[in-house]
């Protein structure tokens, strides 16, 4: 059986608890990823983007008005899918060869 290889079948996602701490992170992701689609379920939010999703520290810091350590998003993170490329400024999820952190 061949596997569909279109945008629907190449989505990365990230999911957070639906709470005050996560809200600026979620808002920043929506701002930085124009193709993002949000699904709300009780107590959680899931954000899907075809191929690549970026979480940008500078966007979050603008919203909260103070420094933000990207790794602290672990506290409200629920789950994710995609190859990870992580620096102090960006957290990227991606499928495809460019997404591999080689």
């Amino acid at each position: 059986m061949s596997v569909a290889n279109d945008a629907t079948h190449n989505k990365v996602f990230i999911s957070f608890q639906n709470n005050e701490e996560a809200r600026p992170i979620i808002e920043s992701i929506l701002e930085d990823n124009p193709g993002a689609v949000v699904s709300e379920m009780p107590a959680m939010i899931k954000i899907d983007v075809p191929y690549l999703l970026v979480v940008r520290r500078s966007t979050i810091e603008e919203k909260i008005g103070r420094n933000f350590d990207l790794q602290s998003m672990h506290i409200n993170l629920i789950s994710l899918a995609g190859n990870i490329e992580e620096s102090e400024d960006e957290f990227i999820l991606a499928w495809g060869p460019s997404g591999h952190s080689a």
Partner: peptide, 18 residues
């Protein structure tokens, strides 16, 4: 069917199938 397929699409370049 969506997220799992995406993962295996990604792994296909190593010769891994569904």
């Amino acid at each position: 069917e969506e997220n799992g397929f995406a993962l295996f699409n990604d792994l296909s370049r190593y010769g891994i199938r569904m």
